[in-house]
Nucleic acid binder design. Structure first.
Lengths: 150, 150
DNA sequence: TTAATATAATACCTAAAGGTATCATTTATG
DNA sequence: CATAAATGATACCTTTAGGTATTATATTAA
C-alpha cells in the first residue's frame, strides 16, 4: 500500500475540480490554488485526461473538467489512474505462501487494515467533495517553492 | 503512510531472527533464507545494529542477534529504525488546515485508517513471530535475482 | 489572417531509494 | 603469528519518481 506524491496530486486536483463540475478549469487556475509545480501539474492533467477522468478542451479559453458524473469516480479509480499499485493481499513481509495455510504473525491484522483502506477508497466518490470549502494548501518542505509558470 | 522496501526487508529480517532469539545469525545464513540482495542485506544489518535493534559480533564466527527482549520491540520501532516516516495526522490530500475546524471530505475516514494501522504496528511485537514456521520467500519481479555473495 | 492563449508531445534533468564494489577492521583458530 | 571468516565504512552505480524545457498543435478573437 503505497500512495505516491503523484497520487496525492491527483486527489488534490480532482477534489478541487469537484467543487464545480461544469466549470472549465485551466492549468493556471489550478496552479494558483493547488500549488502543484506548474509543469508537472500540466503533465498530470493530460495524463488524467488520457485516463478518462478529465475532458480537456484545447485552444484559447481551453481547460479541463471532470469527465463523468461525480458519483461514478471513486478514490480507487484515481489511484488506479495514477498507476499506483495497491498491491492485493500479498504478505506484508514478502513471505510467499503466507496467504495459504500457514499465515504470518500479522497476516490477519494486516488483511483487515487493507480491507479497511480498500473500502474507504471504493466507497468514497467525488461527489462528497462538492461541499468542501477548505482547499488551502500547505507548502512546507517542498524544495520547488520557486516553481514558476511558462 | 509509506512502507518502503527497506522497511519490508527489516521486518523480514527481524521476524526471521525472532524464531530463535539467542542464536547468532550471520549475513550468509540470513541471505540464504530471506533472499535479500546480499550486500544490501549486510548494509541493513549494520544499520539495524546502529539503531539498537540488533547486536553484532565481529570477527570469525560473528553475526547478529536481536538486541532486546522480543516483547519490547514493536513493528513501529522497526518502521522508525528504517527511517520511514509514518506521517502523523496530516491531511491525506495535503490541504493545510484540514485537521482543524474545516475537515476535508474523507478526513475522518482516513484518520480512522491511520489509527488502525498505528494500533497494529504498536501492539504487534516480535514475540509474536516466535511461532512462525513459514519463512519461504517469493522472489517474483525482482530484477536482481542474480544478486550474489561477496 | 495573425496574435494570443490554451493544451499535447516529447525529451531531458534531478534527487532519492535501492543496490554494488572495494577496502578496512575484528576475532577465532590452526 | 598468519590466515580465514566474519562485520564496518565508504564510495559509487542504477532505477525510478518527480520535475523542467522545448517545440508543436488547437482555438478564439481582434
Amino acid at each position: 500500500m503505497n500512495f505516491t506524491k503523484t497520487t496525492e496530486y491527483a486527489f488534490r486536483i480532482l477534489s478541487y475540480m469537484a467543487k464545480d463540475e461544469s466549470h472549465l478549469y485551466n492549468a493556471n487556475e489550478l496552479y494558483e490554488n493547488l500549488k502543484i509545480p506548474f509543469r508537472y501539474l500540466r503533465k498530470q492533467l493530460t495524463l488524467l485526461s488520457k485516463a478518462g477522468l478529465l475532458i480537456s478542451e484545447q485552444g484559447k479559453n481551453g481547460g479541463y473538467k471532470i469527465a463523468k458524473d461525480l458519483t461514478t469516480i471513486s478514490l480507487l479509480d484515481i489511484v488506479h489512474a495514477t498507476g499506483a499499485n495497491i498491491s492485493g493481499n500479498a504478505c506484508f513481509f514478502g513471505f510467499s505462501n503466507c496467504a495459504l495455510a500457514e499465515k504470518c504473525a500479522i497476516h490477519d491484522k494486516w488483511a483487515s487494515i487493507y480491507e479497511n483502506v480498500n473500502n474507504v477508497l471504493i466507497s468514497t466518490n467525488l461527489a462528497e467533495f462538492r461541499k468542501i470549502t477548505n482547499h488551502e494548501v500547505l507548502i512546507t518542505n517542498n524544495k520547488f517553492i520557486n516553481f514558476k509558470k511558462d
